[in-house]
Amino acid sequence: MRPSMGLAALTAVVALVAGGCGYDATPVPEAAPEPAYEPADPPTCETTDSDLASYDPADADPSSGKVDEIRERGRLIVGVSADTYLMGYRNPENNRIEGFDIDFARAIGAAIFPNFNAGRDLHIRVINSGQRIELLENGELDLVIRNFTVNCARWETIAFSQVYYEATQKVLVRKELDDGDEDNGEYHGLEDLAGKKVCAPNPSTSLDNIQERQPEAELVPAGNHTGCLVKFQRGEVDAITGDDTVLAGLAAQDPSAVVPEQQPISEEPYGIGANADDEDLVAFVNSVLEDMRNGTWQRSYRKWLRPHLGVDATQPRPVTPYRS
């Protein structure tokens, strides 16, 4: 090897070793895209007034059948929500499940057990909305009281009491859209949602209704209504749509939110669910609901929903003729 070539090789090696020790930058993963709006499955039947009819409370016999079985067992098992503020939620102060729906569970329990003690005689079982029908069908629950809309499709698998609350789909907005000052915008109805971001759980008929009646609204889905409230508080959406009972619960948690007076978007009649075979229990529940016209229903409504919905309401009349 000639000296000049050797020196050149030497220099190259030194440069190589001294120079190159840098690492490639650690890759940053891309953020997952936000879930897109998905239409709910279309209904398999059309709900009519006759679907809201239940079993005649006059047929109730508390001394036999399912009611007697529950009394013999020593406890009434009711499926409820624990995260729907005002309807069924855990009060963190005392860890008790409270709300409008829970008052109905207590009233039914009190009608079954002579010396009713809620802690002993009423088994409140917290369930999610997807479990409502399944747990009634397999007999794990006697009743479900969990903002449960009565419709024809559900009647094919379970039974419902008469309607105990006529919920409606409405829209929740920021308070400045309901302060009477037209200069900073006011919410009057669906026409005001054009170009606005509207949130509801995905998939849901609430989102479908908005899509159908105000296609210029931008639909922003969330996992559930409380998830919508988080988006609302973070300024990611302008409005939330859903049952007025649920919206009342959301507005109660946020002083900047309001459910203004408005034309309802759809009717959501709530019933108490039971196993399809427990017609006698349903008739008994209906008799309890009729007894609640003595002021119990009104007291419960005024305590939980009236302050946040801002409107008076009356207990719905049963649809007749009764189901046979």
Binding site: D83, Y85, G227, V230, Q233
Partner: peptide, 14 residues
Amino acid sequence: NRQGFPVGAEYLNL
């Protein structure tokens, strides 16, 4: 959560 609002659980979950 300190105010007793269920939305607290949703914030935590998210």
